[in-house]
Design a protein around this nucleic acid. Sequence first.
DNA 1: CACCCGCAGCGCACTGAGTGCCATACGGGA
DNA 2: TCCCGTATGGCACTCAGTGCGCTGCGGGTG
Lengths: 251, 251
Amino acid sequence: MSSSSTAPRRGEKTETAAAKPPMRDALVAAAFQLFLERGYEQTTVDDIVALAGVGRRSFFRYFPSKEDVVFPDHERCLADVTEFLAAGDDADDPVLRVCEAVRLVLRMYTENPTFSVQRYRLTKKVPGLRAYELSVVWRYERAFAEYLRRRLAGRRDGSLRADVIAAAVAAAHNNALRSWLRSDGKGDVGTEMDHALGYVQSAFGASPTPTAPERADDSEDVVVLVSRRGAPLWRVVQEIEATLGRDPEQG
Amino acid sequence: MSSSSTAPRRGEKTETAAAKPPMRDALVAAAFQLFLERGYEQTTVDDIVALAGVGRRSFFRYFPSKEDVVFPDHERCLADVTEFLAAGDDADDPVLRVCEAVRLVLRMYTENPTFSVQRYRLTKKVPGLRAYELSVVWRYERAFAEYLRRRLAGRRDGSLRADVIAAAVAAAHNNALRSWLRSDGKGDVGTEMDHALGYVQSAFGASPTPTAPERADDSEDVVVLVSRRGAPLWRVVQEIEATLGRDPEQG
DNA sequence: CACCCGCAGCGCACTGAGTGCCATACGGGA
DNA sequence: TCCCGTATGGCACTCAGTGCGCTGCGGGTG
């Protein structure tokens, strides 16, 4: 399932090579085998440890709860995302930085398509797992929001913008990811993700292709604005600010 | 706490007036009393039913889980929101409709400020409750997204837009609500919520004050657009479409 | 070599949430 | 008076999760 697909039998000491934590992987493999053939709720932790040939207590040393075994790599991924955001340069666009960060999450899914699809089917059926996945996804969103809050600190509505943009990016990611998972991992997620994130960026006024400004010519910024009938002046101003993604008092 | 603040003693039959489900309210009151004085995890269901003077089995007849007693009115509110969205006219702006719907949720909080603030403090401290609240909030977001998906069906990126806008509206709501809850329920949530939702509307191209177009003069629509250096033509077109909130092939 | 120490896993017993089943009490209608 | 539907209480059970102490192994040190 995840790297080591066969559960090493108990008693084998120091496997030939690979698998740093054999026990952990064995538990994940055993758990998914049972989840897929009987269902999540019909599988007890005792069943899992019996199949894996380990003690019950060991399960809870590797996974704080039964739900955690379904998301064995999110903890690591969240750390990667946090680190990536912390290492960012203050020069680059915050929204783009978050969009790049969310691709790290996508990569975690695409690295193991069959595993991801199986998990998706599982979480779709079991309400408890859906709720748990929600709390997992929420932590990514919090990481995005906190990063944006730092970067937008001092700007008008910085906190609000941070929350909304983080939510929008996460939603776009989930939309593209779910579409890919529904199609059993076939198709080009990357392009779909780019498209979804491009929509978010356009909504929040970041240039859509910054890292590779396709066919950048030498034209200056052109300001055009859409105002509806009856929109008061302050709204027009706010619209410009929102589109520019910055406040008048700050560069 | 919620309507009936004192727990009716067991044995009293058919209270004088008010309180349709006395048992339910008594359980909520007893639960919060204990949660506040000992903490959530330090309170067992047995403690709650003992204080309320009812049988343990009755607790789980009214609340599917211990967590549910913390959010006693969300089920009703979710039904209200769903009904409100279903009853919508096809003429009005979908984004605005969702913004109105989210105000129903806000109202549920503001109807009982002290209760809401207490619950906020509780959920902030207890990770399990935060996770549960997440799944509750997620159901509102799903209701928004499904409504938007229906309304945006056929338009380009309809599903994507629905998800992203729903997430943005929910995030704006949460931002304003949390700010209000942090300040112990003081201050004008309504205005803050309007401001937050206005930001979302401006980002997704809805006119910010549609129900009351303040100072509507007779000016025609003016199209202005912000294009960055190097943005290709298709991006400019997409920007216009996004700002207008509709597709060229549709009205 | 003997000793000690730390780590990884194991076993056991316990708490507490959640469920199924049945008994009971109340109230209304035939 | 009997019957029946509903609301509640009580009991026993499963299972997730925890605390504690035991064991065995490997590695360092005298």
